[in-house]
Design a protein around this nucleic acid. Structure first.
Length: 274
DNA sequence: GCTGCATGATGAA
DNA sequence: TCATCCTGCAGCA
């Protein structure tokens, strides 16, 4: 569940599974963490939330479990007595009052004191989370105008977690498409109207992905794709991974390029360089 | 079975 | 900007 919206959904699920419950069993695959597992037994899970792509499991003694799934980590919820059927490697298991949450495959996990979380090297550099920190359009515009960001090209800037935490590679393509912008455009190139449109699009596409389990395509376009027999991988997005297929807006074939060492998909007509 | 790629991030240059 | 690490999996023998 790689990008911010999916991580937030995972956090919601783990929260619903464990929040308020007392831990009966804690297991860590990591040598640095394993000795501390027993010290969590008896504590309650107070909340599970996310910040960008980081998932934070909070305990009632002020400690916080940080986990980052990178490309492959996944949380599974299950009954304590029932082992999930997965060939993946178990990394974390939290069992509270008979209910369990297990983290598989993730390799970046650490335990922090709540008041020292700001020392985490990754969290320390994160910008506001678009879903959890209640960013407004005006605040997003102001952030895009900050001197350290305003002259950078959007193709690289949107992936920078210090701008807004949680935007990943598929959201970058989707946001630029819905904003009608070329990846080489800079915030300074945009007038008030276009900057507002970009800010609103960043918030809306991210929110849409959160509410619809990662689907950012417009319902009517997705329906048309599905009617044509497209797989979820194809109908899920408006442009991402649609190289060679007709743009939903103008029919021009979608193009794929590498920008900042990542795949970027765009409509050469709707997102022409200005 | 092997290879390359991936919705990610880092550190060196 | 590039190589590298992390792990799983799709695609191809």
């Amino acid at each position: 569940m790689p990008e911010g919206p999916e991580v937030r959904r995972a956090a919601d699920r783990v929260h619903a599974q464990l929040a308020g419950r007392r831990l009966e069993h804690v297991w860590f695959a990591f040598p640095a963490l394993a000795p501390r597992a027993d010290s969590l037994v008896g504590r309650r899970v107070s909340a599970v939330d996310s910040w960008g792509k980081a998932l934070l499991t909070r305990f009632d003694d002020g400690r916080v479990l940080y986990s980052h799934n990178q490309l492959y980590g996944v949380w599974k919820l299950h009954d304590a007595e029932r082992e999930p059927d997965t060939g993946r490697s178990l990394r974390v298991r939290l069992v509270a009052e008979g209910r369990a949450a297990s983290l598989y495959s993730a390799s970046d996990v650490s335990l922090w004191q709540q008041d020292r979380l700001g020392d985490h090297p990754f969290l320390a550099r994160l910008g506001p989370d678009l879903l959890t920190h209640g960013v407004t359009v005006g605040e997003a515009m102001a952030r895009l105008r900050e001197p350290r960001f305003q002259r950078r090209r959007l193709g690289g800037l949107l992936l920078d977690q210090s701008l807004f935490a949680g935007i990943g590679n598929y959201l970058r393509s989707e946001i630029l498409f819905f904003a009608g912008l070329h990846h080489r455009a800079r915030p300074t190139d945009l007038d008030e109207t276009d900057l507002a449109h970009l800010a609103r699009t960043i918030l809306e596409v991210t929110r849409q992905a959160y509410e619809h389990a990662g689907v950012t395509n417009r319902p009517e376009w997705a329906a048309a794709d599905r009617a044509g027999g497209a797989s979820r991988r194809r109908w899920r997005f408006a442009v991402f991974e649609r190289e060679g297929l007709a743009c939903h807006r103008c029919g021009t074939p979608i193009e794929r390029t590498m920008v900042a060492s990542r795949r970027l998909y765009a409509c050469p007509r709707c997102q022409a360089a200005s």
